[in-house]
Design a protein around this nucleic acid. Structure first.
Ligand SMILES: [Mn+2]
Ligand SMILES: [Mn+2]
Ligand SMILES: [Zn+2]
Ligand SMILES: [Zn+2]
Lengths: 144, 144
DNA sequence: TTGCAAATGCAAATTATTTGCAATAATATA
DNA sequence: TATATTATTGCAAATAATTTGCATTTGCAA
């Protein structure tokens, strides 16, 4: 964790720079996979700055509203948050260890056009996730 | 609502035929879009047979386990249930009126193979939903 | 520096879903 | 058909994630 001040950045979004928000931005910058509000809260506790869990929820809500973060929810599980991706991408999720791999490249452009013609819908976005087993988990499963 | 007895069908799955289960099967058969447990419960109450909400949850849980129903959860919202589709299909959802259109034909087979090669994952399924505006809602939005 | 709106902490509320347990109902079989 | 054996149900209470009310604190613009 280096930089702990995102004042300009936050002000640009009309948000005050608080130690809690700076801290969360820093945490979000350093995580490689999406985290739940509670996971982020637990990381925050480890730092010297204290944050309350409701504050974490409130901050993530505001960040999501401003598209600073992306809020995702898998099948049944809790919502997870990550910095909003700069490019359009999709996720490949391991059903056993929950590892997430981001995949660039979207296979849906043509399909969307076809569907638009067939249905008269105007499609504005989509959600695509692939589920499977990562190499490690494939081995573990095979060994049982 | 015609037939109210699915005894053979339920027994085949190792489940007893109860008036609650028969009723739910009938409701599920007649709905055109996925419903929440509570929506199904409310429809059930309208019939003469009484059902408890926890029972509805328990029945839907068991149905889902047996793949009689499909349990889906959109972004933040509650889980919804529908009869398990006989063919692989995806949903096109209107962001304004929440209408759901089912679309047959999956554009992902080739893409999955490519991703498997790139990532060493073994892909077992995927989730694809398209979001947009239905024709009616497009008009309404344009008129504002 | 001060004033005020925005942000926070804390506890309590909400909401969807699940669970324990005693009562009831469905099936198998005597 | 009567009975025994389980599975299923109803009801109330528990859980778990998220949200909210309110008093206090903080950031920042004037
Ligand atoms: Mn895409
Ligand atoms: Mn598909
Ligand atoms: Zn894995
Ligand atoms: Zn619509």
């Amino acid at each position: 964790m280096e930089e702990l001040n995102y004042k300009e950045y936050l002000n640009k979004y009309g948000m005050k720079s608080t130690k809690q928000r700076n801290l969360l931005l820093n945490i979000l910058k350093n995580i490689k996979i999406p985290h739940t509000a509670e996971q982020i809260y637990l990381k925050a506790r480890k730092s010297d700055a204290l944050v309350n869990l409701s504050t974490v929820y409130r901050i993530l809500e505001k960040f999501t509203e401003k598209k600073i973060t992306l809020r995702t929810s898998f099948m049944d599980e809790k919502c997870v948050y990550s910095l909003f991706p700069t490019t359009h991408q999709h996720q490949l999720i391991c059903l056993r260890c929950k590892k997430v791999i981001l995949i660039g490249g979207c296979p849906l452009k043509e399909f969307e056009k076809t569907v638009e013609k067939q249905t008269d819908f105007s499609i504005v976005n989509h959600r695509l996730e692939l589920y499977g087993y990562c190499r490690d988990c494939q081995k573990i499963i095979a060994a049982n």
